[in-house]
Simulated assay, not measured.
Amino acid sequence: KVTIASANALNINFYAGTGYIISGSIAKGESSSDNESLSSFLVELYKDNATLMVIPLSQKTAINTVNADAKGNFVFIGVPPGSYIVKPKKEGYGFEPLFYNVVVRNDSVSNLLFTATKGLYISGKVVNIIGIGQSNITLTIDNVSGTESSQAAKTVTSKDGVYSFTGLSSGDYVISISDDLKDYYQSLPESRTVTLTSQGKEDVNFIVSSYCSTVYLAFPFAGLEGTLVNVFGINFGWSEPLDNETVQVTLGSQSDTIPAGVYFGTDDLSTWVKAKVKSWSPVKILVEAPQSSMIMPFNLVKVWVVRQNRNTEVTATESESAGCFEAAQTDFFLYLY
């Protein structure tokens, strides 16, 4: 929008590029009521090359950098299809989230929202043993600078496994996964100590290994009763569960205690049918698709792996109540008739 009164308006520039747009905005948190203009905030764009290695963001080079405008809006123009990391930057501020992982395919990406908080920060990523970010992992931060430690805050990882603690002061801090998750996850390292002086600290990363099974893929995606289905994941254990191993399973308002194993069924627990196991290893289970509990053409179900929590420090009674059940992330198996 340009308003002309008594003089010409110059340098009204436009930019064009071949490709797509990545856009969003930066807003200040409630505790950051300073006079710093949002136009002084930078936003960086990184190419996110797929790899099983966790490469610290500090070791990557931005392929483009833009300034936010006075209202905090930013835009990258002419972005080709691919995977990217979008990260804001301003000395003396921390951001929530630390960055976004975005994938540009056949359309632009918009509404990437960042909150800037004045002060120091600690941020990082929580991944599993093959480098995949783990969501909904609660981390705690304790300020141990004084004679007595005091818990400062908790935060939860994003869908990409990213976390940030912002608005911190200089001092010594200890970050770890929350106590209530330690029955379900082993963390490497168990905790990390960070000393803040005049700058924030990034790449305070953790690797977590679940005591529960994590199911990535069931293949093939369709078949008849008796079809051999490969179930791929991690933490399945070295052998098929014993016949007397039971797990308390709760789905919505439904709850039941069932034998551990592999099941085919929907989110309705009454549709679950246990599959016959042909072989079992820590990363792959081979089963026969059981007869579907639903008599209709093209039944669509999920493949579930059900096991007790294998944390040896959890008692048998606790283990049953803390049972693990998860559907394959491919999320379906189609029965053909």
Rank of each mutant, 00 (worst) to 15 (best):
V231C: 07
S191R: 10
A222R: 12
L168C: 11
V162A: 10
K159W: 07
F165T: 03
T197I: 05
G223W: 10
G252S: 01
S255Q: 15
Y184V: 11
P241Y: 02
T250C: 03
Q291E: 09
G171I: 12
Q248Y: 14
K276N: 14
Y185D: 09
A275N: 08
L188M: 11
G226Q: 04
P189D: 05
A289I: 05
S169L: 12
F236W: 00
Y185I: 11
G233S: 12
Y184K: 14
Q254R: 06
S279F: 01
F264G: 05
L217H: 10
V215K: 11
Q254P: 08
P290K: 02
N230T: 08
P241M: 02
D243V: 08
T166R: 07
E245I: 05
G161S: 04
D160G: 01
T246S: 09
G161A: 06
S170I: 03
V247K: 07
K276A: 10
V174D: 08
S191N: 13
C212N: 15
S210Y: 06
K278F: 02
V231Y: 05
A222P: 05
A289M: 07
S198R: 06
G200P: 02
S239C: 06
I234E: 15
A260S: 08
V262K: 02
T250M: 09
L181S: 09
A275T: 11
W280G: 01
T214V: 15
D268V: 14
D203A: 07
P241K: 06
V273F: 00
D267C: 04
L228M: 12
P259F: 05
L228E: 15
W280P: 03
T193D: 01
S255R: 13
D183T: 14
I207H: 01
R192C: 00
G167N: 08
Q248T: 14
G261T: 03
E190F: 09
N230P: 02
N205P: 03
P282V: 01
Y163V: 00
N244F: 13
N235Q: 15
R192P: 01
F236S: 00
S239I: 06
F236G: 01
L269K: 13
F232S: 12
C212P: 13
G161N: 11
F219R: 10
S279P: 06
D180L: 11
I175E: 02
G265V: 10
L242W: 01
S176E: 15
S213W: 04
S170L: 07
T193Q: 14
L188W: 02
Y185H: 11
I258C: 04
S239G: 12
L242V: 05
V194C: 00
F165Y: 07
A218H: 03
Q186I: 09
G237R: 04
N230I: 00
L251Q: 13
Q186V: 07
V215H: 10
G261K: 00
S255L: 09
F219Q: 13
F232E: 12
V204W: 09
P241S: 03
L196H: 03
D172N: 14
P241C: 06
Y211L: 12
S210E: 12
